[in-house]
């Protein structure tokens, strides 16, 4: 059943277009895939100019809420789970994204936009497991 009270089609589509534009610009200007986990990992493994643009991209993400705050109050962010669960989830996401060569942005947005079969398989896998996880946590436990 669709949760009409929380469904926000206009802002979701607008935000999606902005994310797509960010991916498009990083590709057309820098020739790089906007995969957040890969870029973050690269801030450790690369050096020189290769490291510099990655740090700049991550800095942009970190500071985006500050730019937002200059124009409007920040939207609410509800985080459920204690610190232990957050740590475990963070660890799983880090290991998984690195082992799987990408995350929601690299595989889910850029990979699908490139019509990559490998990214489609990755996206269906993490979406499927995430849906199953939420089902178990919310409806079975």
């Amino acid at each position: 059943m669709i949760d009409w009270s929380h469904f926000t089609p206009e802002s979701a589509l607008t935000g999606g277009l902005m994310i797509g534009l960010a991916c498009a610009l990083l590709w057309l200007l820098n020739g790089r895939i906007a995969g957040i986990s890969g870029i973050t990992a690269g801030t450790f493994t690369s050096s020189g100019s290769e490291r510099q643009w990655r740090l700049a991209f991550v800095l942009g993400l970190l500071l985006s809420s500050w730019l937002w705050l200059m124009l409007a109050p920040l939207p609410v962010a509800e985080v459920t789970g204690n610190y232990g669960l957050l740590a475990a989830a963070g660890l799983l996401v880090g290991i998984g994204a690195r082992l799987g060569s990408g995350c929601t942005s690299g595989h889910g947005v850029c990979g699908l936009a490139r019509l990559s079969m490998r990214s489609l398989v990755a996206t269906l896998t993490f979406m499927g497991v995430a849906v199953a996880t939420v089902f178990i946590v919310r409806h079975l436990l």
């Binding site: 994204a97 799987g100 995430a130």
Partner: peptide
């Protein structure tokens, strides 16, 4: 990797 990622994401 994708499965582990999905698990962490879903948690």
């Amino acid at each position: 990797g994708s499965a582990l990622f999905g698990l962490g994401w879903g948690l």
